[in-house]
Simulated assay, not measured.
Amino acid sequence: MERNITHIALFAALIAVLGLVPKIDLISGVPITAQSLGIMLCGTVLGARRGALAVLLFLGLVAAGLPLLSGGRGGLGVFAGPSVGYLVGFPIAAFVAGLVVERWKVSIGIASFAGAVLGGIVVMHIFGIIGMSIMLGKSLTEAAMLAVPFIAGDLLKSGLAAGITRGLARARPASVLSRN
């Protein structure tokens, strides 16, 4: 129990630290950030349930006003902007990524990459596109076109998440809770 709480808090902090990497603002108003790598790692390392809880803790701190999102953003106002779909999708993305790693009994690297792609790209962009469509008053197709610039970087982050998870599993197998 205590170990779970520590891991959840540690990964919420990891997402916050990845927000210190400078963001790249796009015309859609949704920035490219390193924080989606943290979301992927929450799932691939902690597993579905703990990964989603770490992200929910992070989002709770953001909602409470802490400037933890990339660019020093925080507070309830961020949930009324074009990135709201991505924020809502964060915990679901971590859950799906973790579920893939937990259930798919192939090598940890392959399972982590598949989980990061499915959760951290597919699921996150489904929510993000819907959020942009609503908040920007665009059709789903128009909003999807705004999400295209994210895909290459997200594939790179998926590879990083898989590599980090695989390296962690080799160095300290007990620390990859998604496989314990």
Rank of each mutant, 00 (worst) to 15 (best):
P149Q: 01
S133W: 01
P149T: 00
T33L: 09
G81P: 13
N180I: 12
L140S: 06
I5N: 10
R179I: 08
V148I: 15
K157N: 03
G71F: 01
S36Y: 03
L10T: 13
A93S: 15
I92V: 15
G38K: 04
A116K: 02
P149S: 01
V45Y: 02
K157R: 06
I129Q: 03
V101H: 07
G98R: 11
S70F: 00
F150W: 11
H7D: 14
F79Y: 13
S70I: 02
S175P: 02
I164W: 07
L57A: 13
E102Q: 15
V122D: 08
I27E: 14
C42G: 13
S112D: 08
T165Q: 11
L156G: 05
G159L: 15
L168A: 14
G119M: 09
I164P: 03
L14N: 08
A97Y: 03
R103D: 08
E2S: 14
T6R: 08
I32C: 07
A63F: 11
V122W: 00
A147R: 01
R73G: 13
A152D: 10
I164Y: 05
S158L: 06
F150G: 08
V30W: 00
I32E: 12
M40L: 06
P31D: 02
I129K: 00
G60P: 13
K105D: 12
A143K: 00
S112G: 15
I27V: 14
A64I: 03
F95L: 12
A169P: 03
G75D: 05
I129T: 13
P22N: 12
L59V: 09
V176W: 05
G119R: 11
L140Y: 09
G167Q: 06
V117Y: 07
L69R: 00
A94D: 12
V55R: 09
L61P: 10
G74Y: 08
L46Y: 11
A143Y: 01
G137T: 07
I92F: 15
D154F: 05
S107T: 14
L41I: 08
S107G: 15
G167A: 06
S178E: 05
G60D: 09
V45F: 03
Q35W: 11
V84I: 15
L136N: 15
L87V: 06
V106Y: 02
